[in-house]
Write a protein that binds this DNA or RNA. Sequence first.
DNA 1: AACCCATTACATACGACTTATTCAAGTGGC
DNA 2: GCCACTTGAATAAGTCGTATGTAATGGGTT
Lengths: 233, 233
Amino acid sequence: MTTPAQGLHTHVLDTLGLEIAAGDSPPGQVLRTDELAQRFDVSRTVVREVVRVLESMHLVESRRRVGVTVRPTEEWNVYDPQVIRWRLAGSDRPRQLRSLTVLRSAVEPVAAGLAARNATAEQCAALTECALGMVATSRGHQLEGYLRHDTAFHRIVLNASGNEMFARLGDVVAEVLAGRTHHQVMFEDPDPAAVTLHVRLAEAVREGDAEEAERLTKEIAVGALHELDVLAP
Amino acid sequence: MTTPAQGLHTHVLDTLGLEIAAGDSPPGQVLRTDELAQRFDVSRTVVREVVRVLESMHLVESRRRVGVTVRPTEEWNVYDPQVIRWRLAGSDRPRQLRSLTVLRSAVEPVAAGLAARNATAEQCAALTECALGMVATSRGHQLEGYLRHDTAFHRIVLNASGNEMFARLGDVVAEVLAGRTHHQVMFEDPDPAAVTLHVRLAEAVREGDAEEAERLTKEIAVGALHELDVLAP
DNA sequence: AACCCATTACATACGACTTATTCAAGTGGC
DNA sequence: GCCACTTGAATAAGTCGTATGTAATGGGTT
């Protein structure tokens, strides 16, 4: 249970973050720093640093004479990749995956349209390569390999959009894809239709066809949402 | 210059965050905790807590025997409202505003469509009230009042979408609107066309017309982008 | 009901010790 | 003489324990 951990801080932070994100320690719950110090067998210094980080993520609020109180979900910094990872590991993964996928369905089509206009030759080449990789790993239970190519594919599109905010969603998308692969929210082999769409999207971007790129990405997103409806309760 | 600050931690964090976001302390720059402690005249304990928070925002990386190194821009958690505020206060505000507005143009139309389907009666009423408030403050240099209604309006739409990720972008949108109002990236009176669009959007949401809501929001976004092109270098 | 004070738990500080990392000197082999 | 590998000293962050400051709370007093 106790991760070897590349640092006490990391271990305590991860454990607490997971607990809070999972819903143990419900909102309003108060944690005491010295209790935490005892529980993890670390100094209060370490605990305080952890609390400060959790506070910066708006997961908790620390007030004098009252303790460290867990904040309500609506106030969390849900775009923090770390928070996303914690939540995806917890019990409301289905709803979380749905929220994130809806976000993707809004952002990625626009990003793909921009990518079709702005992508460099290198990016187009990398995109095609990823698409081919997806085809190659789309059969025979090679989910890990498929995930790697899929993640890279979407990351390239987001980067190629030229918009920094889109580019930084690469991590979020990566977490979503990894989450659904590693938590059985996926068939044994990926949907063939999705693979085809990715190949065509790579083409559309290469040819600079923004409208087609946007349309195809929307289709990918709709597919992903539908898959969630089928596989997640 | 030295803010009284409701805490040493807050003061140091804000100062360092601003410096890094502004581009002084360029990527690769190394900071030493001892030096920082001296410079701010605080203990190393405080500095370490600040560093841990900056680290959680991926602004810096702390390694033994090396120091605290500033990470390249592409790795920052640019969705952290705090980071956004720091960056908007800095020198590349124009580009930042543009990135964020493009993000809005992707997200808000979809959110508005969902809001048209999901908004409660209360939300519809609040929306209409905000729209009326915007009309009332759209003339005679009442930018502050207009900003307040505008911010509330978009926040309601994002909340009414029912999607948590959208809802949490309310803060981001608020920062953008505040940023452009407070930094002269706006005419003396808001664009009348924009005001009308907001009124019609409130109507569309109330009537549950998702497509119209989406279309109108897109128009609002296009207008905002165009305004940026005119007013920001 | 309004005020005051003791308690409590975080906030800040300091100093000693530990550990990982780096850089360079030293060693040996070829 | 040159390269590769080992060793060790220096360095700066990591961890800890403790002491003191400080604000918020809750109860008791008037």
